[in-house]
C-alpha cells in the first residue's frame, strides 16, 4: 500500500517537473494560430473587416472574437481556407462587406496639391512624394486597400480596376457538370 502511494507520488512529481521544464524550454512567443491565419489573409491592410489591418483581424479570429467571413479582398476562397484551418463550417460573406474588383489607386497628377496626407495613410508605403510636390502611386506595390481615398482633400485619387491581361489570364472554371440526379430524359424513357 505504502509503496504504491510512494511510487505514484514520485512518478507524479517527476512528470510534473518534466512538464514544467517543457513548458519553459519549448515556450512559443505569440499565437501560432494567429500567425497561420495571418498567412492566409491577403495583406491589403484595407480595414474593411473593421480591424486596423490584417494582423489585428487575424488576432481577433484567433481569440474567437470575430467571424471568418469579413475579408473582402480575400473573397470566398479565404473563407474556405480559414474554415479549413480552424475546423469550422464555411459561411457566406458578411452582408455588410462589399466585394470590389481588384484595383490599384491612381493619383490624378494635375489635381494633386502635395499635402502628403495619402502618403501617411498608405499601409505599404506605395505612394511617393514630398510636401508641395506632386505624389505618385507605385502601382506594383499598391494593394488596392483604398485607405488613401478618404484623407485626400481634393479627391484626386481614383481606383482603377486591374484589367485581365494576357499575363494574369487563367482558364475559366468550366462550370458545374450535371449530377446524376439532375439528369433529364432517363434512358428508359427514350427506349
Amino acid at each position: 500500500m505504502l509503496s504504491a502511494i510512494l511510487t505514484m507520488t514520485i512518478l507524479a512529481s517527476l512528470f510534473g517537473l518534466l512538464l514544467g521544464y517543457a513548458a519553459v524550454r519549448f515556450h512559443i512567443e505569440g499565437d501560432p494560430i494567429a500567425d497561420q491565419i495571418d498567412q492566409m489573409l491577403p495583406q491589403t491592410q484595407c480595414g474593411q473587416c473593421g480591424h486596423p489591418g490584417c494582423r489585428p483581424y487575424a488576432d481577433a479570429i484567433a481569440r474567437g472574437e470575430d467571424e471568418i467571413n469579413k475579408c473582402a479582398p480575400g473573397g470566398h476562397e479565404t473563407i474556405i481556407a480559414l474554415a479549413d484551418l480552424l475546423g469550422r463550417d464555411p459561411i457566406a460573406m458578411d452582408e455588410d462587406i462589399e466585394i470590389r474588383p481588384p484595383s490599384v489607386a491612381i493619383i490624378i497628377e494635375e489635381d494633386c496639391i502635395g499635402c502628403t496626407l495619402c502618403i501617411q495613410a498608405c499601409p505599404v508605403d506605395a505612394i511617393l512624394g514630398a510636401a508641395k510636390q506632386m505624389h505618385s502611386v507605385i502601382e506594383s506595390e499598391c494593394t488596392g486597400c483604398e485607405l488613401c481615398l478618404p484623407p485626400c482633400p481634393v479627391e484626386c485619387i481614383v481606383m482603377e480596376p486591374i484589367e485581365a491581361d494576357i499575363r494574369s489570364w487563367s482558364w475559366p472554371y468550366p462550370g458545374d457538370q450535371p449530377q446524376l440526379a439532375q439528369e433529364e430524359t432517363p434512358v428508359e424513357a427514350q427506349a
Binding site: L41, P42, Q43, T44, C54, E77, V124, S170, W171
Partner: peptide, 23 residues
Amino acid sequence: FAKTEIWKQEEEKRKADHARRRH
C-alpha cells in the same frame, strides 16, 4: 483551369507576403 488557378493563387500568396513585409 486547376493549373492556372494554382499558379494564380501562388502569385497572390507571393504578393500578400510582399505586402506583409512592406507593412
